[in-house]
């Protein structure tokens, strides 16, 4: 399985780079940091985007949508022809919305800090399903995140899985220090809290398995690298939301095509 995920995540990186080369403006760094997390989520047995009655999912850090689209393309849920047509009609852009990919996108994105609270509503409406969300580590500064976390803990909402993409870079600064994550503050709430390497597919899958079995809601702190797998962009604040040169993208595409 691990070997498969490695191949698939390389293919997703390749697809993502091709989309960027094709003038799709995506945030490279934050997309790459959660790419492996998303790969395991959608290519593991966790969320089957083709199924009607699947688990709900919110990509709270909507700027990482390019990876999500790459997964939809790779799974042939949407063809590149349809994708380009929607793009031409200006119906796809730099954030997700539920209007054109209704079956596959569960929530509009663009504003940060909302998803955990919305997931509570999802979870109460779907008590027998696990509800998943991926949030950024900079995003957890939002007060609404904490309103939601306290509510989940106090009211014993037990079917939410929150993945924190801990890439240590916000849009404009390094956020190496994060009290709530570093000082185990989350462990004091009623959550199953796990820290993992967010690029290690085996750890990710194991952690997702545990979260599904857990009788409490889970918080997975995934240590990741912003720009992971994209050479010059790795851990480089410049490429948090800035594009790298086409020549460099072409080089990266060559690399992933060969591997």
């Amino acid at each position: 399985m691990e070997k498969n995920f490695k191949i698939i995540s390389s293919e997703i990186r390749l697809q993502f780079l091709k989309l960027i080369l094709d003038k799709n403006k995506y945030h490279l760094g934050g997309s790459a940091s959660c790419l492996d997390l998303l790969t395991v989520l959608f290519f593991g047995k966790y969320i089957n985007l083709k199924k009607k009655n699947r688990s709900p999912f919110i990509l709270s850090k909507g700027h990482a949508l390019g990876v999500f689209y790459s997964i939809l393309l790779k799974q042939r849920i949407i063809s590149i022809k349809k994708f380009n047509l929607l793009k031409k009609k200006t119906l796809l852009g730099g954030q997700l919305d539920t209007f054109n990919l209704t079956k596959h996108v569960d929530w509009n994105t663009g504003s940060l800090g909302h998803s955990i609270g919305v997931c509570i509503g999802f979870a109460i409406a779907n008590p027998k399903k696990k509800v998943w969300t991926i949030v950024g580590d900079a995003e957890i500064d939002e007060g609404s995140v904490w309103e939601a976390l306290f509510f989940i803990s106090e009211k014993k909402i037990d079917n939410i899985i929150i993945i924190i993409d801990r890439n240590r870079l916000s849009a404009s600064s390094y956020i190496e220090k994060k009290e709530v994550l570093d000082n185990n503050i989350l462990n004091q709430l009623r959550f199953s809290v796990t820290k993992i390497n967010g690029h290690d597919h085996r750890s990710i899958a194991k952690c997702y398995d545990q979260a599904i079995k857990s009788k409490k809601s889970s918080i997975i702190i995934a240590n990741t690298i912003k720009g992971k797998g994209f050479g010059i962009a790795e851990n480089n604040i410049k490429y948090s939301h800035e594009a790298i040169k086409n020549s460099e993208i072409s080089e990266l595409i060559k690399y992933y095509e060969q591997t």
Partner: peptide, 16 residues
């Protein structure tokens, strides 16, 4: 916690 309140209601309404 009004922000959370509204977000919960939104999540509920999404599922009918």
């Amino acid at each position: 916690a009004e922000q959370n309140l509204i977000n919960i209601s939104a999540g509920l309404a999404k599922f009918g």
